[in-house]
Design a protein around this nucleic acid. Structure first.
Lengths: 244, 244
DNA sequence: TTCAGATGAATTGTATACAATGATTGCGCA
DNA sequence: TGCGCAATCATTGTATACAATTCATCTGAA
């Protein structure tokens, strides 16, 4: 019942009106892995669910596609995005470029109120984890990074980070390998500690390492055989008499 | 008549279909300063000009708003965006964070074909400058940065840089102070030279300085009195008997 | 049995009609 | 004459109707 459970949304209010609500609902569902990558988002279905016309549904889907959460295929429809391994690597390279510096800036601008807010946020994360609400925990964990970017008070960069965190959620859904325990809690606590001490150097370094840790929990090895070459595998490598 | 004059467009093909053409035309017009910041973009007017329904016009305007070129005010309409001084600073801070590193990556991936392409691009810039086609020169100058980001082969970061360059165009339209001669030509030549030598350190440094130089040509001082307080200025600071 | 082609259903893309909101102008009153 | 208010107009927001494309299924022949 605290402010975090109903916390606004990831997407900046570029869109207003009814479609904003749809964007928020879909965003949250995707972030919490209730909507898997590749899921078809039919317009009629959504307009039925949200009780609005297809017009506003289409507006919402277009907004989501601009944020990389949804992929629009012309005459085919809208689908929850499925980032490739390449895109996954790019996203975390971009985060590695932006977020450590942002953590530094945030440290310099950190106030008591900010610290309290972050502390409450980590508590909420912990709570969700304890209740085994993995989806919510994951969403909050991403939002922690967004909160930091807002504290850094660079709206433009914060907007980029929001996009990247959003895509990260999809990437984790696709490439997270279960055996690796993702221990966000510890990393976030350590960051908060650095913020509290006003140690910008440490905050920057911790964020850098934290991002590396996240990538480590992912399996981003190139999948061996492409499905494109499936025909070749079964028939032969496109040169006659290839395999017995 | 070369490939650069008709060169694709800034916006990535998130949108397809007829609205893509409208996005491209409007983008180009804004980049070339033919559409000034604040200009009203009426839906009926545009649907008339491009001979499509308001539906596709609205789609195009929404796409442009997501890229920060257009501002949508609910029930008021669409306007060419007017970045504030604060936003202007943020944009160039973000560019300073992203582009030097990108220039370094580009250097490492630079091929002969890339070099030729960049060389041709600079020629086109020079040509437009010589013909006093300032709008076109400005657009090409921004696109030079985008080409580099594409060579760096990081689509995600390149997308961010595209947005930033787009907004930079608006910022220049608003805050460029005429007395300062913007000598992009020299800086771009120097960058190309570093690329050709494969000197990544130099490329990174040159890009960093180039961005600083651009900011230097802008007047980003806080405008003295806000128009919000205009009433206060004329009547008094909202406290009776404030000023004699 | 399998593949090719065609037909039909379902879904998306676009245009248009209607509703709602905001701007403008004219009138009435002080 | 200046201000406030109200009605009208223009413009945007939403819903719906129609067109176009894609996907599935069915038929038929090799």
């Amino acid at each position: 019942m605290n402010h975090l459970s109903e916390s606004p949304l990831f997407i900046q209010p570029t869109i207003t009106g009814p479609s904003a609500a749809i964007v928020a609902r879909l965003s949250q569902a995707i972030h919490e892995h209730r909507l898997a990558p590749g899921t078809k988002l039919g317009e009629d279905e959504l307009s039925d669910v949200f009780d609005v016309s297809r017009t506003v549904v289409r507006s919402a889907l277009q907004a989501l596609s601009h944020d990389g959460l949804v992929e629009l295929k012309r005459n085919r429809g809208a689908f929850v995005a499925k980032p490739t391994i390449r895109e996954a690597r790019e996203v975390f390279e971009a985060r590695a470029l932006l977020e450590p510096r942002t953590a530094r800036s945030a440290t310099e601008r950190m106030t008591r109120a900010h610290l309290d807010r972050l502390h409450a946020h980590i508590e909420a994360e912990h709570d969700a984890m304890a209740r085994a609400e993995h989806g919510k925990a994951l969403r909050l964990s991403g939002q922690f990074h967004i909160e930091i970017s807002h504290i850094a008070d660079q709206a433009t960069i914060a907007g980029f980070i929001e996009r990247l965190v959003a895509r990260s959620s999809l990437i984790i859904a696709l490439y997270w390998q279960r055996q690796s325990a993702m221990c966000e809690k510890h990393a976030h606590h350590a960051l908060l500690d650095a913020f509290a001490r006003g140690d910008a150097d440490d905050a920057e370094e911790l964020m850098k390492n934290h991002l590396v840790d996240i990538v480590t929990t992912l399996d981003l090895r190139d999948p061996a055989p492409r499905e494109i070459s499936l025909g070749e595998i079964l028939v032969g490598p496109s040169s006659p008499g290839g395999q017995g």
